[in-house]
Each structure stands twice: as C-alpha cells, then as structure tokens.
Simulated assay, not measured.
Amino acid sequence: MEVIGWILIVLFFIIGFVGLVYPIIPAVLFIFGGFLIYGLFFDFSDLPWWFWLIQTLFVILLFGADALANAFGVKKFGGSKAGLWGSTIGLIIGPFVIPIAGILVGPFLGAIIAELIFNRSSLKQSIRSGIGSVVGFITSVFTKGIIQIVMVALFFFLV
C-alpha cells in the first residue's frame, strides 16, 4: 500500500505542475490533494498544524495570484475588462483549438478580438492588450510554479 500511496502522491504533484500551463487543471488543488493522500495512506500527524495552515494560505494566494497576474498584464498594457475576459476565454479555449501553442495564442487572440469587438479599439491597442495577456499568463505561471515548488519542498522536508 505504501507504493500505491507514493505513486498517487507523485502523480498528483505532476498533475499539479502540468496545471501550471494547462488552465483547466486546478493545479494547486492537486498539490494539496497529494498532501491529503499522504495523510490517508500514511499519517496526518507527520504534518503539523502549521504545515496545513501555510499550505491553505498558499492555496488562497495562488487562486488570487492567478486572477491578479492576468488582470495586471492586460491593464498594464492598456487593455480593458473586455480584453481581460477575452484573454480568459482564449486561455480556456486556446489549448483545445491549437494544442500546446494555444496556451499562449488563445489568450493573445482572445484579448485582441474582445478589444476590437467590444471597445472598438485600434488594432495597435488591441495587440498591446493581447501582449499584456500573454505577459500576465507567463508571469502567473512563473509565480505559481515557484510557490508550488515551495509547497512540495516543505512537504518533503517534513516527511
């Protein structure tokens, strides 16, 4: 049973890191799920109360950081709420339409199209909004990746 437990834990961690670049996967919940699987297969007492508190705060931080980074990127490059929504929709749909490249192309095109349609922005301004959405996404992936590495490192340090 120990081997099965560790396989599941590692699988959840891997899915969590894949979720950094594939937005449909709730990455941080899989990381947290790996901790719960450890507790179920082994012993929750190996992980002190402060571990759970820190990890819960990281989960909340990561959900907030995801939304803020995208919004910051679009706004910083002059985009509007329409550009933000277009970027978000593009981020969700993009990977399905264009596998792998859709992760970056989706939000870029989504922001551009939304700015052109809803705000009647110039093509130049719409493209700036699209660039902002990609910058926001990349910033978000980088930030979330670092935090998730810290989460997993703390886990392995304690076990």
Rank of each mutant, 00 (worst) to 15 (best):
E115P: 12
V135K: 08
L158Q: 13
T143I: 12
G94M: 10
A71P: 09
F137D: 10
L91D: 04
I147W: 03
P95M: 02
A69P: 12
F156Q: 04
V97F: 00
V134I: 05
E115N: 08
I146F: 11
E115Q: 11
I113C: 09
I138D: 01
G136N: 03
I100K: 01
K144E: 02
G110Q: 11
F137Q: 12
K76H: 14
S140F: 03
A153D: 00
F72L: 15
L104W: 03
K81C: 02
F157Y: 14
F156G: 03
L104F: 15
V97R: 00
G94N: 04
L84N: 07
F137E: 08
L68M: 15
K75R: 14
G83I: 02
A82I: 04
K75T: 11
L91S: 08
G110H: 05
N119T: 13
L104D: 07
I89W: 06
I92D: 00
S133C: 08
F77A: 14
A67C: 13
G102M: 07
F77M: 15
G90M: 01
F155Y: 07
G106H: 10
V150F: 06
F137V: 09
Q125M: 11
F157C: 00
P107C: 06
K76T: 13
F155M: 09
A153R: 00
Q125W: 05
F142N: 03
R120P: 05
G86D: 06
L84P: 06
T139L: 09
S80V: 03
I98K: 04
G73W: 13
G78E: 13
N70W: 12
Q148K: 08
R120K: 15
L68D: 13
S133H: 04
I92P: 00
L84S: 10
P95A: 05
S126V: 01
G78P: 11
I131S: 11
S121G: 10
G90V: 03
G106M: 04
L154P: 01
I98Q: 00
G86H: 02
I117Y: 12
I149Y: 10
L91I: 00
I117L: 13
A101L: 15
T139A: 11
N70I: 15
V134E: 08
S129I: 01
P107Y: 04
F108I: 08
V152K: 06
Q148W: 01
K75N: 14
A114Y: 14
E115S: 09
L116W: 12
I149F: 11
I98F: 10
I138E: 04
I103F: 07
G145P: 01
P99F: 04
S129W: 05
I112A: 07
I113H: 02
Q125C: 04
F108E: 14
M151R: 00
S140M: 10
V152T: 09
V74F: 09
S129P: 09
G79P: 11
L123K: 15
G145E: 03
F108D: 11
K75P: 10
G78H: 10
G94F: 00
A153E: 03
S121N: 14
A111K: 11
V105Y: 06
A101F: 15
S80C: 09
L68K: 15
S121I: 07
F118G: 04
P95I: 07
I146N: 09
A82W: 12
G145M: 06
P99T: 06
T143K: 06
R120L: 12
I93D: 01
V152D: 02
A114S: 12
V97G: 01
G83S: 12
Q125R: 14
F156C: 05
I92V: 08
V134Q: 01
L123S: 13
G145D: 07
